[in-house]
């Protein structure tokens, strides 16, 4: 298991768990990042928002907020 924020550009994985404060969890769930969902890392540069692709959607995420998203990296 590894963190979403540690995934390399081009890597693919499945969300294992999501945690954080209630508002963050509610919002991240409504945008589709729930356990079991496939994610590919599009862009992950230091001090920049990360860009992931999931459920046919390009999603930009604040790096700090999503430090609590755990992944199972598959490729």
């Amino acid at each position: 298991m590894s963190k979403l924020t540690d995934m390399q550009k081009g890597a693919e994985g499945t969300v294992v768990s999501v945690s954080g404060d209630a508002r963050f969890v509610s919002r991240i769930t409504s945008i589709g990042l729930t356990p079991g969902c496939k994610v590919s890392m599009i862009k992950n540069e230091k001090n920049r928002p990360i860009l992931v692709y999931s459920r046919d959607t390009m999603i930009a995420l604040n790096r700090k907020d999503c430090s609590n998203i755990e992944m199972e990296v598959t490729a």
Binding site: R23, F24, R27, I28, I31, P49, L51, T57, M58, I59, A60, L61, N62, K64, D65
Partner: peptide, 8 residues
């Protein structure tokens, strides 16, 4: 307020 969670 929250950090960015947005779709392009």
């Amino acid at each position: 307020r929250y950090g960015m969670i947005m779709e392009l």
